[in-house]
């Protein structure tokens, strides 16, 4: 129990030191833009279709669930607004981020872990280069930008999925579905959803690069790093969701009072 707690504290401490080193590198060196764009292209291309699909079905599920609730009150006209609000502010970013953690997080962690155990990172250091500048920072920036973009695409697709199921499953027209979205889904709730996307992207990028970079122990070690990335990312995302929800709710209530 104590050993487990100590390991977690060590891990968090190691992660913070890692991030400190990365931000220090970011302040002193500019990563090569073509390397960053190359990584953005890879991450986005690899995950765009799955993220869009996941977003579509998250929206569809939310619409089905809300249909069952609002039908009882004869308030189907509010279905679009309620389902979209719930998806954009809460469920959408979290579920799509879970999906991305499996796709982008596991891939990055395995890639960096393999580079570590095959001594590629040591080779970079021996050639007089800084691995944070050459390898980690470009990936970190790319994962944040790509994940933010992918999460936004996923949320947009969730509206499409909700709309389709609204028409097919709930029996309302597209116009009825869309009518109350602008009144319920206000600008602060869109900002709150996008803020969550940004925080989730940061959490994902930080955990997968850290776990990959600190891999030890050959092929088994890479396997362990990927599993650890998956677990830590899920836990990290849920905690980040809780914290961002509190912050977003506080901001929303302040905005409503104003």
């Amino acid at each position: 129990m104590i050993a487990g707690f100590r390991a977690i504290v060590d891990d968090v401490g190691g992660g913070l030191l890692f991030l400190g080193q990365m931000f220090s590198t970011a302040l002193h060196y500019r990563p090569k833009s073509h390397v960053v764009f190359d990584q953005i292209w890879k991450v986005t291309l690899n995950s765009l279709s799955t993220t869009a699909l996941a977003g579509f079905f998250v929206g569809a599920i939310m619409t089905v669930q809300f249909t069952l609730q609002v039908k009882e009150f004869g308030a189907l006209g509010y279905l679009g607004g309620l389902a979209t609000s719930g998806t954009i502010r809460e469920v959408g970013p979290l579920l799509i981020a879970f999906m991305l953690s499996g796709k982008v997080g596991a891939f990055t962690s395995a890639e960096l872990g393999t580079m570590r155990v095959t001594e590629q990172i040591d080779a970079v250091r021996c050639l007089g280069a800084n691995p944070f500048q050459e390898i980690i920072l470009p990936r970190y920036i790319a994962i944040i930008l790509s994940s933010f973009f992918l999460l936004a695409v996923g949320l947009f697709m969730s509206i499409a999925g909700g709309l389709l199921l609204g028409v097919v499953f709930s029996g309302i027209t597209a116009e009825e579905y869309l009518r109350h979205i602008p009144t319920i889904v206000t600008l602060p709730s869109i900002v709150s959803g996008l803020f969550k996307c940004l925080v989730f992207a940061l959490v994902l990028a930080s955990i997968c690069t850290y776990k990959g970079f600190t891999t030890t122990g050959g092929a088994k070690g890479v396997g362990r790093a990927v599993v650890a990335t998956a677990v830590a990312t899920m836990v990290g995302l849920v905690i980040a969701d809780f914290v961002t929800t509190l912050i977003a709710e506080a901001i929303l209530s302040m905005a409503m009072q104003a």
């Binding site: 590629q120 050639l127 007089g128």
Partner: peptide, 30 residues
């Protein structure tokens, strides 16, 4: 490290770069 060159037990080539880019890596850096 500029003075020292190390050949690792494993080839430790950068697997996302071509052979040319691998050999040119240090030259471009320094």
């Amino acid at each position: 490290r500029k003075k020292c060159g190390m050949v690792f037990q494993h080839p430790a080539l950068f697997d996302s770069l071509t052979v040319f880019e691998n050999v040119a890596f240090g030259l471009r850096k320094h």
